[in-house]
Design a protein around this nucleic acid. Structure first.
Lengths: 195, 195
DNA sequence: TGTACATCAGTGAACGCGCGTTCACTGATGTAC
DNA sequence: TGTACATCAGTGAACGCGCGTTCACTGATGTAC
């Protein structure tokens, strides 16, 4: 069996990546159910037919997008935590800037509930990346016991997602900003507790 | 102008209520975008055409449903808090029973992110009910200062929503249950802090 | 008491549209000889 | 070097279907006289 490369090496892989990126943006902005294949493909500057050369179905695209974007988010968190520490990372996440950055921000917060309605494979992909996030956060917590670090990290992540979602709902700018700042304080409170 | 009652008094009002109830169930279970008018009306044992005798549009149904179901939820919280206190209410909310009760449970958690994508009118309806929840929770917190009660209540509500969503995503039953219990502990920790 | 009429909650077919998916095809590239 | 052929990423029309919404209608009820 011979393996020939007729197209620029990795071209198809790059197209696939581009589809995932534009899909992620649409998903975050409008939700998974409200996002159509045709609009995603148009965003990627392709026609709808090309989709099925890259993915078996919409379900598969969702799975791969959740997987890839959550991994990217963990990497981003790692960078922010390393460069600025916990409070800086929390403040970056719960900033009005991030709140208003629907398409390019966090994947978890806007899609968490909807991921809960996806097939097990997609939810497992999320769960795996969540474990990465938990381990990462745990490294920046002052507690001694590993189990306490873990449970605190879980609580902080849940709090962050809930707070960002809530701030995005509230139309009153002052109240919304208050909710964000409040989330930072509560997360720090949880982080500081040793047991 | 004469006002005659040709049908059983309040029949239309009751039908309207029934539509909102079945819509709420569908919205919680499948999300707003994934729920169609025709299926809601079929659930209410009516044909799709009848819908527009009760609501101007799907957007209006969403608004009224969010308003009504959030109000009902506040009432349920009030009852649970009054009868069992804070920890009991937290444990009820973050129970595996509630986690698995997608259609009839909390409206806020499964729809929070999606409500954030609705028009301002719907988001304002949510915001008003959220304020009720905050005031209600604040009454069951040990802090002295009203501002601290308020900010703690906000944090607890955000934590509850995020935790329930997360627990619903995780396929591993043990990990999911751990996340729920962990949420209870974190909420209690926040509640106990006096400042 | 009996009949003609008004009211109106609900019916069900139809509208244009976008959905996820399929498929025969195009056309640029590389291979074989 | 030149020509016939194979590969395959992407094209674009089409599929059946459900969406939100409209509308002429039905038929049970109550009113008027």
């Amino acid at each position: 069996v011979e393996l020939t490369v007729r197209y620029a090496k990795g071209q198809k892989v790059e197209t696939r990546k581009r589809i995932i990126e534009v899909a992620a943006r649409r998903f975050r902005e409008h939700g998974i159910a409200a996002t159509g294949i045709a609009t995603v493909m148009a965003d990627a500057e392709l026609t709808n037919g090309a989709f099925y050369g890259h993915f078996e179905s919409k379900e598969h695209l969702v799975r791969e997008t959740v997987q890839a974007e959550m991994a990217a988010q963990v990497a981003a968190w790692r960078l922010t935590l390393r460069s600025g520490g916990l409070e800086f990372a929390l403040r970056t996440y719960l900033s009005t800037l991030h709140r208003d950055m629907h398409g390019t921000g966090c994947t978890s917060a806007p899609l968490l509930a909807e991921i809960g309605r996806q097939p097990t494979a997609t939810r497992s992909a999320y769960a795996a990346q969540l474990e990465e996030s938990i381990d990462l956060f745990a490294d920046y917590l002052p507690a001694r016991d590993a189990a306490i670090k873990r449970s605190t990290a879980v609580a902080i992540i849940a709090l962050l997602a809930g707070t960002l979602q809530m701030a995005r709902v509230i139309p009153d700018e002052a109240v919304s900003a208050e909710i964000l700042e409040n989330g930072v304080q509560a997360a720090l409170k949880l982080a500081r507790a040793r047991r």
